[in-house]
Design a binder for these strands. Structure first.
Lengths: 241, 241
DNA sequence: GCTAGTGCACTGGTCTGACCAGTAGGCTAC
DNA sequence: GTAGCCTACTGGTCAGACCAGTGCACTAGC
């Protein structure tokens, strides 16, 4: 049985080949964000396929967030700058299909935010600290849950950016929005906001002082406090050293 | 200017409506993995659209990993169990477009693996420990890079599973394969393998002893050692407390 | 001369109807 | 009873058509 090692043949659909080619052009930088693809009618000539096939390929590319098309646009589809939308979508699906529990999501947030604070404490710039100060000020001034939440998101985003790691930033953002979405219907007591602000201030002080481990621990603690009412008892304890 | 607050109208394409409906059916559990969608010709009747529109919707659903279709199948498209394939794809794209540096990816791995070890140290089962032992044995017995790498992956996967957090497990897996892919062309000295095995054994001992923080630190250290040759000096130091 | 308005030539979105190569399951011939 | 064929499906692809939009060049009015 040691004859020539044949590979299983993979029947490749025409539209997949188109997707591959365009994808590769984008990834190699040959096609840059903002540039335009030829029109569908041009593409069908270039790839010598029918328009349906071109369109199916474009649908896949669009689902992956690589291009966007607009009806009536005299140019072809636009190559998009990267957005975490596709990442967000697939993670949301993962969470919705109930493969993921809320506890797992919050745990993941604790891990990511902890890392973000740890890094931010060591790498922050004065401008980023100012952003965090500003966000906390807006949290304190907020007159409703919506404005409070917006400022809160801004704060966390500033920390994530200060971490210098875009992947941490993106994933934090995605997971945060999923978690907030899942508990959106639950009521948040205004009293919780005061405690939340205090937590943020403590963590920010640690960041400012350059004490990464402390900042990380405070961040995890704050998340645990905030979300434990929605979770089984002790679900997050493992991450609070 | 305080008239009725009009919402900007969003023109919804027909195929998007189909995607939404099917997606919702899958997420709500109305359609379970393994079940079949009606055939395209049936769907065009049910949605009262043309087959092209149905097909474009199916392409999007397929790109999201929700369904799969096979030519000639007398049943319709199959609803897929969740796979992180879509997640993997979008993260790979993110890395390929050069939005992400190798350093950021490895940093992210250090964060995730650290968390996995921390949790695994506290939650592991005897069976999972046995899997880790077995993987290390196979690493030691490996006669080539390929078998070594496979055993290595098994080890890390066992740890990730022992963490009890599927999101950590999936993301670790995705990021690991991306990183390995990025440095695949670089040569790994066999001498590195011995050191790697020693690192794994140390970390496993810490896991077995239930010392999560130690296991996490060792795991991060091991990753840092392994990848630092491919990275700018000090790129990972921030995560080694 | 310059601007405001109007066509027009294009775009993407959708539809219709057709053909092909596969597959599975029932039917027939052995 | 079984091996093999037949048929009625499937998804993949093609061709050609229509529509509602969009941007731009051109023109009519100032």
């Amino acid at each position: 049985m040691d004859g020539p090692r044949f590979q299983p043949v993979r029947t490749v659909r025409a539209y997949e080949r188109i997707v591959e080619q365009v994808e590769q052009a984008v990834e190699s930088g040959e096609l840059r964000p903002g540039e335009r693809l030829p029109s569908e009618r041009d593409l069908m000539v270039q790839f010598s396929v029918s328009r349906s096939t071109v369109r199916e390929a474009l649908r896949v590319l669009q689902a992956r967030g690589l291009v966007r098309s607009r009806p009536g646009d005299p140019n072809g589809a636009e190559v998009m700058p990267f957005t975490p939308a596709a990442l967000h979508k697939s993670m949301t699906t993962l969470a919705r299909v109930d493969e993921l529990s809320l506890a797992e999501l919050v745990q993941f947030r604790m891990v990511l935010e902890g890392a973000a604070y740890l890094l931010a404490a060591r790498l922050h710039t004065p401008a980023q600290l100012a952003e965090m100060d500003d966000a906390i000020a807006r949290m304190r001034a907020a007159d409703g849950y919506e404005s409070f939440s917006a400022a809160d998101v801004d704060f966390h985003d500033a920390v994530a950016r200060a971490s210098g790691n875009k992947l941490i930033q993106i994933c934090s953002d995605v997971v945060r929005s999923i978690v907030l979405d899942l508990i959106a219907d639950k009521i948040r007591a205004p009293e919780q906001r005061r405690r939340s602000i205090a937590h943020h201030e403590e963590a920010l002080a640690a960041v400012r002082a350059g004490d990464g481990p402390l900042a990380a621990r405070l961040a995890r603690q704050a998340l645990s406090d905030f979300y434990s009412p929605y979770l089984p008892d002790g679900a997050l304890d493992e991450l609070l050293e």
